[in-house]
Design a protein around this nucleic acid. Sequence first.
DNA 1: CTAAACCCTGACACCGGTGTTAGAGTCAAG
DNA 2: CTTGACTCTAACACCGGTGTCAGGGTTTAG
Lengths: 124, 124
Amino acid sequence: MKIGELAEKTGVSVRSLRYYEQQGLLTPLRQVNGYREYSPLAEEQVRTIRFYLELGLSTEQIAGFLHCVLKNKEAFCEEVLPLYRSKLEEIDEQIRLLTNIRRNLEDRIASILLERDPGEEALP
Amino acid sequence: MKIGELAEKTGVSVRSLRYYEQQGLLTPLRQVNGYREYSPLAEEQVRTIRFYLELGLSTEQIAGFLHCVLKNKEAFCEEVLPLYRSKLEEIDEQIRLLTNIRRNLEDRIASILLERDPGEEALP
DNA sequence: CTAAACCCTGACACCGGTGTTAGAGTCAAG
DNA sequence: CTTGACTCTAACACCGGTGTCAGGGTTTAG
């Protein structure tokens, strides 16, 4: 299958498919004319890549274990669990930061409303 | 006061002070030799800028109301409240996204642990 | 044969505040 | 006068997946 077809089947842009290849996540064969030729398995492989990208992993991190998870169950790939755990910490840190900002924003909003129309926002 | 002194007093790098100026947030005078000359008020002004940056506002957004909040109380600057509210929605959306990812990560971790050592993680 | 639709590579743009470097001018202390 | 510490402008790098364009080949249906 050619790149356009794979793009349509997976909903991933042609540009992205070429990028994944450049990052070592996909390795299509080449036809004599230079066109990329994807096996039917590539479709599932692309969905796997998308899954990990949506978990917030980088293409570089994914490249580190993709070959393994494509052959085995995730649980047998040593690299995955530590990666998940550090990503989880990272996410938690980001949530903490955002939550702090959120609190500050609410404080500012509340104090503006108070200063502007004292008592008005206390209505039911 | 020269830029290095202001940088030291505020803890903001010289690079950033020049950037704030470029974004229209600071307008120091110039000495005859071309050096920036900051008034003592600039110190407080920089802290104000930092405050808004840390709320997640962009220099462009800050530029839109900084002149007002430097003269009046925040509550009298019309632009501020809507900006706070849209920023709050933005933050909430980001927290939602991160929370989803977080849940997926935890699911993956749990299922790896289950698959690998069934029951082991259930210990006290 | 031709036009439309694909495909190829390579490269720039984006986002946005900050670090860093290069090359050059200025100033103060010794 | 000289040296070292500042200052100036201008410009690139970063981060990272994606959009988009340029310029050129290939294929396929009419």
